[in-house]
Design a protein around this nucleic acid. Structure first.
Length: 965
RNA sequence: GCGGGGAUGCCGGAGCGGUCAAACGGGGCGGACUCAAGAUCCGCUAGCUUAGUGCUUACCUAGGUUCGAAUCCUAGUCCCCGCACCA
């Protein structure tokens, strides 16, 4: 489809502006004059607009990108004209697998590949006239950037928020790396929707995002985000309240989490996940073979079939003690229990949980009803499905008759007294697995040293824990202060007396045999509980969430230790700040950063870093002995978790960003991007913000108070625009044909930007016409005085367009602009013409600059002040008059049609009889032009009027009489 | 299964208690201009009716609330999206 030729209607070629030339001219001038470069300015209000930075793919910018960037650009330009100090930067998420894979395929290097792609992106983005401050450009594969990834990794490490652990992880055989939980979608890899994710047991790096689960959930409330995204995050975090209950199995305690402690007396078996790492610790010898067979069978089942899967299991041979009745409860291994959720083991209450019910039926395990459905008699109850509703407790010892909600509370209390359970909250959110076994990413700044490993192990004080909870808190970073001295054992007296800063402690959880190592950062001693109590902050850290407001409460809380006061007297009170460490895992010192990604590596087999000798072989930062470098790289979502902060100070070589600068610009006032990041980038970035706040890097809680999700761009066939469907429209092609301004305009004129829309080749023409109309008008209009009507129209448009841009209803802004263009007159005041061009400027910046300069202006319209509404010029009477006029035009056409039908011939003249006070609304010239026939206007009281049929008598207010002949 | 969002005229899509036969754009049809085509401008685009009027059907289906519903409520159908054996 070629761009139509145009003329002025008289056969003369119309001057179609050379859009390309105009665009390039202004893009160049903006850049030369540093129009979009900004600095912190305390006198100006800042406004930070950000579009999610793209992964620079080799296929270049697509329509969805263009849409996204134009949405952000319009608001940037608008806010800039409103006088805000607008930060609008762009960067590239340039690490990542596709580049590495493409490089392998093309026998190239990811760096070359990526940098070509970036150059291409930049060229295309410039062509779209996007108002970026290019001096702040960042690319995550740049050592100047990823150095700070490593720095932040070490900060996380120091805070105890990074750990290395063997766990059940997701492995994509196509990506040849592990994936974060968030990157597994429906059992498949997020990049390879056809590739099954395998479950493996591997040692990997994790970040404790779960520490902030509660806050991440809670703070969603204060965000101005699409409800859909908030809901997705809420579901992802997945908070459930319930209880943690300890079942003793073969004398060892095992945890289960349940939301239904009220059904505790109905437990008839326990089920441990068949994938549980500790499963075989409880399998008895005679059951070993069956369990092994079962586990093997489970492994061969595809993730895909899991929802269709029958609940299956096998008895482990072990029995647990019921915590309240002491009954023996069989422990099964099952395929329907998730290893990674809760403790990986559940208590099964078949009468009141459908899954347990099915399982019990299948294996003939007794079903014990403990909650009575009101109105039913339990005697003759034949269960065909589990009863999951509420009701009155039965068969539950001393709790019979209680409502099940009350019972929850009471039963948990009873467990608590026996120290066999407590209230607990579980989240679906898992810790973030960040290590990747691939080359094209930020190297994890860690060195493994065997020497130091042995050294630390040897020098450590050994300390046993019997309290599951304290151990758990330390291990998950919730607590980094210990006050075991509140309850010291005689045996460890010496330890408490001698411990000092820099010592290592080996903590053994006697209940689970887990071992963790701690390094003592600080030791504080108190002579009495009273002294300790003065340290409010410390108390809060030791007993998080408990808010002791008196010593007596604190004492009471510890009263289960009969002689603790004596002990305090005897040994004193010691509190230590500790850090979780991993012996032999040595963080690279700050001064040695960045750990550079070596350029010369061999691609093809496994992780190229692992086979790069020069990289792997290194020296231990502590003992200087031979050591081995970590070869895993970071998930690229690490890069994007804080890039918005880097934009505030992109060139800083001393620190990730200057705190003052970040404080000025952050948070991001307007963030746009696709919804696909709801549970990945947007959770990680929020997590990072909270972490950085806690280490004093930033002062805000939430990085993106206002998030906007643009809709999806579909092809003309209505399907999502994609290469495979062959319905892709290249934005740059469109821009060449119709000009960038028409493209920009069209992208946001179809519908509200948060909705999906289908590309329309006819629609783009209408945007092109809009631009042409404006150009033609401003070329031909006579500058002078605006009519009252035009002033009214212009000011109405200012008001509406301002409001509509503010509320992201760009499509409405454009409707108002169209209507304004439609009512333009041959003469206009320069001021009004200027306002009109300004209103168009955010949408069509190039042509606006051109028209602006054609008016003799030397400065950029981009930096002009947004027009102010002059309310006094807005006169609703004018709208009414216009309506009446329009109605009259309608009526005339209607009359003409009827007359033609009746008389069989076309009328040539129209006579209008107007009430005397309405005279000014009806101008014969205007009407003639509109109707296309001569229209003669009379006042009804005109004695000399021509009115053969007395139609003047039909005239009513707002409705003149009509005669046609 | 759980959660979120939808269903509007030929099409895309506004509207979210009256001013709605329903913005705006597209398409189609007709007209003006022109030797002519495109472009531009004007009108029409549910049906019947009428010298500019009035009526009847209409906003997924069925009920309901209301003086009054495309808009609110109830039930249902269909579509899209997210999560999914989360104990």
């Amino acid at each position: 489809m070629a761009r139509p030729k145009k003329d002025d209607g008289k056969g003369n070629e119309l001057n179609i502006p050379n859009f390309k030339e105009i665009e390039e001219k202004w893009q160049k001038r903006w850049e030369e004059d540093k129009v979009f470069q900004v600095k912190e300015d305390s006198k100006k209000n800042k406004y930070y607009v950000l579009e999610m930075y793209p992964y620079p793919s080799s296929s270049g910018l697509h329509m969805g990108h263009a849409f996204n960037y134009v949405i952000g650009d319009i608001i940037s330009r608008f806010k800039r004209m409103q006088g805000f100090n607008v930060l609008h930067p762009m960067g590239y998420d340039s690490f990542g697998l596709p580049a590495e894979n493409a490089a392998i395929k093309n026998n190239s290097h990811p760096k070359v590949f990526t940098e070509d792609a970036i150059a291409n992106y930049i060229r295309q983005q410039r062509a779209l006239g996007l108002s970026y401050d290019w001096t702040r450009k960042i690319q995550s594969h740049d050592p100047l950037y990823y150095k700070w990834n490593q720095h932040l990794f070490l900060q996380l490490y120091r805070k105890g928020l990074v750990y290395r652990k063997e766990a059940v992880v997701n492995w994509c055989s196509k990506c040849k790396t592990v994936l974060a939980n968030e990157q597994v979608q429906g059992g498949k890899c997020w990049r390879h929707t056809e590739t099954e994710v395998e479950i493996k047991n591997l040692e990997q790096w994790f970040i404790k995002t779960t520490v902030y689960a509660e806050e991440l959930l809670r703070d969603l409330e204060k965000l101005n985000w699409p409800e859909r995204i908030k809901t997705m995050q809420r579901n992802w975090i997945g908070r459930s309240e319930g209880a943690k209950i300890i079942f003793k199995i073969q004398e060892k305690p095992w945890n289960v989490f349940t939301t239904r402690p009220d059904t505790l007396f109905g437990v008839s078996f326990l089920v441990i996940s068949a994938q549980h790492t500790k499963l075989f610790e409880l399998v008895t010898k005679d059951r070993m073979k069956e369990v092994e067979d079962f586990v093997r069978k489970i492994k061969t089942i595809k993730q895909e079939d899991i929802d269709k899967l029958d609940k299956e299991g096998v008895f482990t041979g072990a029995y647990a003690d019921h915590p309240l009745t002491g009954e023996k409860i069989p422990v099964w291994a099952g395929n329907f229990v998730l290893a990674e959720y809760g403790s990986g083991m559940i208590m099964a209450v078949p009468a009141h949980d459908q899954r347990d019910f099915e399982f019990a039926k299948k294996y003939n395990i007794p079903i014990k009803l403990v909650i009575k459905q009101s109105g039913r008699d339990i005697q003759d109850e034949v269960m065909i499905e589990a009863y999951i509703g509420s009701g009155e407790l039965v068969n539950s010892k001393g709790y019979n008759g209680l409502n099940n909600e009350e019972a929850k509370e009471k039963i948990v209390n009873a467990l608590n007294e026996k120290r066999l359970g407590e209230k607990s909250v579980q989240y679906k959110l898992r810790d973030w697995l960040i290590s990747r076994q691939r080359y094209w990413g930020t190297p994890i700044p860690i060195v493994y040293c065997e020497n130091c490993k042995n050294e630390i192990k040897r020098k450590s004080y050994e300390l046993s824990f019997y309290d599951q909870d304290i151990f758990f808190q330390i291990a998950t970073g919730k607590k980094i202060v210990e006050t075991r001295a509140l309850n010291p054992h005689e045996k460890t007296k010496e330890f408490y007396g001698n411990i000092k800063k820099g010592d290592y402690i080996k903590c053994i959880n006697k209940l689970t045999n887990e071992i963790i190592y701690l390094k003592v950062l600080n030791v504080r001693r108190f002579n009495s509980l009273q002294d300790l109590f003065k340290e409010k902050e410390l108390l809060e850290r030791i007993f998080p969430g408990k808010y002791f407001d008196s010593i007596s409460k604190l004492e009471k809380s510890y009263s289960h230790t009969e002689d603790y006061l004596d002990r305090i007297k005897k040994y004193g009170l010691v509190a230590w700040d500790v850090q979780l460490i991993f012996p032999g895992i040595m963080p690279v010192p700050e001064k040695d950063l960045p750990v550079l990604l070596p350029e010369k590596v061999k691609f093809g087999e496994g992780n190229p870093l692992a086979s790069c000798k020069e990289f792997v072989e290194t020296r231990c930062p502590k003992c200087k002995g031979k050591a081995r470098r970590e070869t895993d790289t970071m998930d690229t979502f690490f890069d994007s978790s804080w890039y918005y902060l880097r934009f505030t100070d992109a060139l800083n070589t001393k620190e990730p960003f200057n705190k003052k600068k970040a404080e000025y610009w952050m948070p991001v006032d307007f963030y746009t991007g696709g919804a696909e990041h709801a549970c990945m980038h947007l959770i990680y970035a929020r997590f990072f913000s909270k972490f950085m706040r806690d280490i004093g890097y930033v002062k805000y809680d939430e990085p993106f108070p206002r998030l906007f999700n643009q809709g999806m761009v579909h092809g003309e066939d209505g399907a999502v625009m994609s290469k495979s469907r062959g319905n892709v429209i290249d934005p740059l092609e469109i821009s060449k044909k119709y000009g960038t301004d028409a493209l920009r305009l069209f992208l946001v004129s179809m519908t509200s930007p948060d909705k999906d829309f289908a590309w329309s080749s006819a629609g783009i023409e209408s945007s092109f016409n809009f631009v042409m109309k404006l150009v033609k008008y401003s070329e031909n209009v006579k500058l002078g005085k605006s009519s009252k009507k035009l002033e009214h129209k212009a000011n109405t448009a200012i008001r509406e367009v301002t409001n509509n841009i503010e509320s992201l209803k760009y499509n409405f802004a454009i409707i108002h602009l169209r209507s304004l263009l439609d009512s333009l007159e041959d003469e206009i005041a320069e001021k009004d013409l200027k306002s009109i061009i300004k209103l168009v400027a955010p949408f069509c910046p190039h042509i606006a600059e051109e028209l602006w300069s054609n008016l003799g202006n030397k400065d950029f319209i981009t930096l002009e002040r947004w027009p102010e509404v002059d309310e006094s010029k807005i006169d609703t009477k004018i709208d009414e008059q216009e309506k009446a006029f329009k109605k009259t035009v309608d009526d005339i056409f209607n009359v003409l049609k009827i007359v033609k039908e009746k008389k069989g011939k076309e009328s040539i003249k129209v006579y209008l009889y107007v009430l005397p006070n309405e005279n000014e609304g009806y101008n014969s010239e205007m009407l003639s032009k509109r109707i296309g026939k001569e229209v003669i206007v009379f006042a009804v009281n005109d004695k000399k009027k021509y009115d053969p049929e007395g139609k003047a008598g039909k005239a009513k207010p707002g409705k003149p009489g009509i005669y046609a002949e």
